[in-house]
Amino acid sequence: MVDRSLALPDSVAKKTTGPFQWLKSMYLRSEPFRGYVMLSPTLLIMIVALGAPVLFLFVVSFWTQHLLDFTPGFVFDNYITFLEKGNYQNLLWRSIKISGFVTILTVLLAYPMAYFIAFRVTKNKLIWIILITVPFWTSYLLRVFAWKIILGYNGVVNSGLAELGWIEAPLEFILYNPFAVVVTLAHAWAAFAILPIYVSLEKIDRSLLEAATDLGDTPRQRFFRITLPLSMAGVVAASLLVFIPTVGDFVTPALVGGPKGLMIGNLIQLQFAKANNWPMGAALSVISLMAITGIVCAFLWFTKRIRTQDL
């Protein structure tokens, strides 16, 4: 090979200069550049309609309100109020407990269902998948509302049992308590838990299961040594997908919770309606968000540790 790296023809030197040519060449050469150009509209709206408002929420949580006027500033009044009011803390704690129960319940119920579709259904799999995904997309409000008419004082259950002659007076304990909230939420979020678990099960290479059997595992051992560890990512995703949004829910407690089943979401909503203390509402939102983030991080750390220990 002859060395001729130095002598570029004149025409070349001319073509590669000039700002337009440089920009064009830059655009062609840089994949990150092209990628971010293409992402920019979506990112922009995410920042404008989500990122910035949530950041601003954080700022407002340090403001105070007197009658109808906001007082901008950086004071911890709202956070102190939260620490002083035991019932605020109880409400947050209850929300976390309820969401925790709901999460465990939905994941426990969803896993066998996802397992069934992934491994047992061979014919008409598409129909099964669609059947469990449809509720995922349809009205959350209606799914919750259905339980109000089921569990209500004169609802489906009470009137049905009365009609059958099993009860004299309507059962009052079935509605307006944390239990009703848990059942309703577990139903409403069922589809959210199935999908991630199903995806992770479906991804498992079937030859791994055959290999485990071949190496002497019983079906039970195989499940705990291969299937479950390999689908843990789906279980973790499902848990987060159910836990995080349910902590802040206010529709379900408002409809079926009663005073004992109220959650932090109801308190936040109240600050923006009757109580009308927006900075306090902002502070409660921030506190909830922090609590959720803390729990999620702890959960991720914990599951990661378990998983790495097992292997």
Partner: peptide
């Protein structure tokens, strides 16, 4: 064919 390709898509 003699043409530089650095800014040709």
């Amino acid at each position: 064919d003699g043409q530089p390709m650095s800014s040709v898509a």
